[in-house]
């Protein structure tokens, strides 16, 4: 031990003259700064380019190089994407599909997490495992039976197939995450509530739910991004233009305009990207923590 500490003790803190240190520090940090600059350019430049391109006119795309700046802010691309491109309709469909799914996932998932973690009964471990297994199953495994079922029930042609499927596929991760959060609450809290005469439902509504409110918000954010960005399920169950969600609309937009008319396509992508950026700017800490916590979904 003393042998380890000896050299440490012999080193005397002799600060080198200030100007030398500053220039040496700058040179030493130069590679790191260059590296950070490169990372930033790689991450941010494509998005800047996307934004700039959304303002370019058709003539500018043809005649100017791709990295040139737009000569003016041409909002015409946005107008065209919104009206001819139907982006307004697609956004409405996305909201109409995502909002009810999200509400159902949260209400059902939080209650189930409570029942599986706080309540005491035989077989709860098994049920939790059954929910967990759902996280791994690829969407392709349930598409065909669901498609047949919705067809038989006459639900095709509405947004119900999306809402039902999103709710079912969102539940496993939600139940799993909520069970983890309820585990962190001391059992004594609920036992005290029971002694004070609260029924289980009362304990859930008045104590359990308020105590995990923050976690519920985080889980809701995670699920929002999964559902909003989903392509597979939306592509399968939306069989007409009137039902398309933003992602499906964008995919078809490419075929409709993309080959020749970049402006409206870039404007449409921009509305999607910078809308999410606004949410991200406000809530990034929570989103990062939540998505990292929900990483099991892959």
């Amino acid at each position: 031990m003393s042998a380890v500490l000896a050299p440490e003790r012999s080193v005397r803190p002799v600060p080198p003259p200030a100007p030398v240190r500053r220039s040496r520090g700058f040179l030493r940090r130069l590679p790191v700064r260059a590296l950070i600059a490169v990372i930033l350019v790689i991450e941010v430049y494509p998005l800047v380019w996307l934004l700039l391109s959304s303002f370019k006119t058709r003539r500018e795309f043809v005649e100017e190089p791709f990295w040139s700046l737009p000569s003016s802010l041409a909002w015409g691309n946005y107008a065209e994407a919104w009206t001819t491109g139907n982006i307004g309709l697609y956004l409405r469909n996305s909201v109409l599909a995502v909002a009810p799914s999200l509400a159902l996932i949260i209400v059902l998932g939080v209650a189930a997490g409570f029942a599986l973690e706080v309540l005491v009964w035989k077989g709860r471990g098994t049920v939790l495992l059954i929910f967990l297994a759902g996280i791994m199953v690829p969407g392709q495994m349930i598409l065909l039976p669901l498609f047949s079922a919705y067809f038989q029930l006459g639900l095709t042609g509405s947004l119900w197939p999306l809402i039902i499927t999103y709710t079912a596929t969102g539940l496993p991760l939600t139940v799993f995450m909520m069970a983890t959060y309820f585990r962190a609450i001391p059992r004594e809290v609920f036992e005290a509530a029971a002694i004070d005469g609260a029924t289980v439902l009362r304990a859930f509504v008045s104590i359990g739910f308020p105590m995990v409110r923050n976690a519920v918000f985080t889980v809701a954010l995670v699920q929002f991004f999964f559902i909003w960005n989903d392509l597979l399920i939306a592509l399968t169950f939306t069989n007409s233009t009137e039902l398309r969600t933003v992602q499906v609309g964008l995919l078809n937009f490419n075929g409709q305009f993309g080959a020749t008319d970049y402006g409206p396509l870039f404007a449409a992508i921009c509305m999607n990207v910078f809308g999410l950026l606004a949410i991200y700017l406000v809530l990034n800490k929570r989103i990062m923590a939540g998505l990292a916590g929900g990483a099991v979904k892959g």
């Binding site: 059902l108 189930a112 599986l116 929910f131 199953v137 596929t169 439902l201």
Partner: peptide, 15 residues
């Protein structure tokens, strides 16, 4: 009441 609805939706539309 708490687990039923989630388990039902999950079983019918996933399992």
């Amino acid at each position: 009441v708490l687990l039923g609805p989630a388990l039902l939706v999950y079983s019918v539309a996933m399992l």
